[in-house]
């Protein structure tokens, strides 16, 4: 064809990881929770993203098979939600809140500082693969704006002057509370 069209006829050229057997088992562990297998999709996508760092084409295809739905069903769901990404992101994803409260408290200066320190723009990843930068509509911590979330860790009342310090801290994504065995408590019906 003489014009540019996105190719959906051929499989994507890029490589993406497969679901490991333990990961599949973890997903299957959720089957009892819901009356349909499809309902396990969103938990499964969280587990995949937790494991792979993103939800790639291959993972989408394989989870579709596992849940007995079509790959397009998975693509549909994945793309709807802003917290699933279909392409690799940095080891740490920095989400800068831009909701009204954070915005009025200087979220744009925090975001600008993040861009400066990391040397990347919104929705970009540092060349070393360490950080990705994103914006977020509301992190529901408006009393402590401006907020930054680094993976699961929330940083509140962020002063632009402290952004460099936060980003240079290796433990900036470590939670202060014990992390639950993410998604492991699936079969509790007998308890």
């Amino acid at each position: 064809m003489a014009w540019k069209a996105i190719d959906r006829v051929n499989a994507p050229a890029e490589e993406s990881p497969s679901l490991s057997e333990p990961l599949k088992e973890k997903i299957r562990g959720f089957f009892d929770r819901y009356p349909t297998k499809r309902a396990v999709l969103i938990p499964a996508l969280h587990m995949i993203q937790d494991d792979h760092g993103y939800v790639g084409w291959k993972a989408m295809e394989e989870v579709a098979e596992l849940l007995e739905i079509t790959p397009s069903d998975v693509f549909d769901t994945v793309s709807f939600y802003s917290h699933f990404w279909t392409h690799p992101k940095g080891e740490k994803v920095v989400m800068a809140c831009r909701s009204i409260s954070c915005d009025l408290l200087g979220a744009d200066r925090v975001l600008d500082e993040c861009k400066k320190v990391l040397g990347i723009g919104d929705h970009e990843t540092t060349p070393d693969g360490k950080y990705s930068l994103m914006t977020e509509e509301c992190l529901a911590a408006c009393d402590h704006g401006p907020c930054l979330m680094i993976n699961e860790k929330m940083h509140k009342c962020v002063d632009p002057a402290n952004v460099r310090k936060i980003l240079e801290d290796d433990a900036n994504d470590k939670l202060d509370i014990p992390r639950s065995n993410l998604y492991d408590g699936a079969n509790r019906t007998s308890a």
């Binding site: 989408m60 079509t70 397009s72 793309s79």
Partner: peptide
Amino acid sequence: IDAFPGKP
């Protein structure tokens, strides 16, 4: 509207 790549 879209189709899954490779599953047209």
